[in-house]
Every structure is written in structure tokens, then in C-alpha cells.
């Protein structure tokens, strides 16, 4: 963990201690129950997007209930659980092909009801992050990843870190905005390795 991420960690820790408002109270509990009933009833299958998708896992339910601001203990518990479920590459390698990674990062497709079964999912990376300096149409919901490898090197620790972050961003921050690409089966192991390479390979346009 470098200084910057240490500071980030300390900040998020202190924030979590200051405020963890929940929609508490009996009236609120009734409304929570009613909301759950309405959501379950009012969404239906369309194409590949089945109605069961509105059923929340433990993490989704907690982040919704606490509006992404979890009590400290619950946050730590959920993050540990997510981290434990990370499936590491069997061959112990984290770096794939950055060129394939760039293509994947460009694609915002996948898993909507207008996508077809079997269509390859994109990485959606540029939707939220700056990556290569040549791509100016990038989103800003997530932090800029320009020069990600240049500033961090590409040793095994950082490779492992990047892989874990892509596999399950919630292991590091329970209510992060970023999808859990490995955990939810959005991307394959090989695709996630290609994205690690896009971030860390010295030849990748992210680091040029």
C-alpha cells in the first residue's frame, strides 16, 4: 500500500466513523418492506434481463439500506467476505495482452435487455475512467487511471492489487460504484488479465 492509498484508506475510515445514517425507525422499516414488495412485483423479464435480477445479495441490500454509507463494523465484515470469495488465476499470472484490454475497455456493451445471450460483455472502463491519453471521451465517475502503471510500477503486488480491484472492487470498498467484474461473472479470467495489462504494461497507452 503506497502513501496515497494509505491516506485514502484513512480518510474513508474516518468518514465511516463520523456518519452512518440509516433510514431507521418503524415507519421507515415499513417503507423498506413495501419498497421491496413493489420492486419485486413491478419488474419483469425482458430478453436476457430476468426479473430475478432485482433480488439483492447481502451487500447490495446493505448498501441500499444505508445509502452507501455503512456502519464501520458491517463495512469491514462485508469487505472481508467479498475478499475471501476472490478466485485467483490458477496459473498465478495476472498480466494478459494490453491490446485486447484496450478493446475491452472501450466497449460499454453487455447484460442489458437489448444485448443478446452470448454477446461478449465489454469492460465499460472508459464510461467512468480516463485511461489512455489518446482517448478523450472518458467518464469521470471513477478516478483517472492515466499513467496507472507508470506511477506504481508493475511488480507482483500491484498486479495482484489491480486484478483484485477488477475482480471485486467491493472487497476494498463495500459500496464502491464499480461493478464486481469477476465476482458477478461479467468478465472472464483472461479478460481481467488483459485489463491488468492495460493498466500496468509499460507498452500500454495508459503508461505512454
Amino acid at each position: 500500500m503506497n502513501t496515497k492509498s494509505m491516506i485514502g484508506f484513512a480518510v474513508s475510515l474516518s468518514l465511516a466513523m463520523v456518519a452512518a445514517p440509516s433510514q431507521a425507525g418503524d415507519a421507515s422499516k415499513d417503507l423498506d418492506a413495501k419498497t421491496a414488495m413493489i420492486v419485486k412485483r413491478d419488474f419483469r423479464d425482458k430478453g436476457i434481463a430476468k426479473a430475478t435480477r432485482v433480488e439483492q445479495d447481502e451487500l447490495q441490500a446493505a448498501c441500499s439500506k444505508y445509502v452507501d454509507n455503512l456502519p464501520k463494523k458491517l463495512k469491514a465484515k462485508l469487505e472481508a467476505k467479498e475478499a475471501e470469495a476472490i478466485k485467483w488465476p490458477a496459473d498465478g499470472k495476472f498480466m494478459g495482452d494490453w491490446k485486447a484490454g484496450e478493446k475491452l475497455a472501450q466497449s460499454g456493451r453487455g447484460m442489458t435487455w437489448s444485448d443478446k445471450e452470448g454477446d461478449p460483455n465489454g469492460g465499460n472502463c472508459y464510461n467512468c475512467h480516463q485511461l489512455s491519453s489518446s482517448e478523450i471521451a472518458y467518464g469521470t465517475i471513477g478516478p483517472s487511471l492515466l499513467n496507472f502503471g507508470k506511477t506504481r510500477g508493475n511488480g507482483e503486488d500491484i498486479q495482484r492489487y489491480a486484478y483484485a480491484r477488477i475482480y471485486n472492487a467491493k472487497a476494498g470498498n463495500a459500496c464502491a460504484n464499480m461493478p464486481r467484474f469477476g465476482h458477478m461473472g461479467i468478465l472472464t479470467e483472461a479478460q481481467m488479465k488483459d485489463l491488468v495489462a492495460l493498466l500496468l504494461d509499460p507498452e500500454s497507452p495508459v503508461n505512454k
Partner: peptide
Amino acid sequence: EIGKRIFNYRAGPYDFACSTC
């Protein structure tokens, strides 16, 4: 009140709610 909860309701393969964006 229910609308506010739906706005913050995270679900699906991407864990998105309206509030994500």
C-alpha cells in the same frame, strides 16, 4: 419515500442504482 428508496436500490449484475450515476 418509496421513490427515494427505489432511487437508491442497488441490484443486478452491475450492482447499479439510479444513485450510482
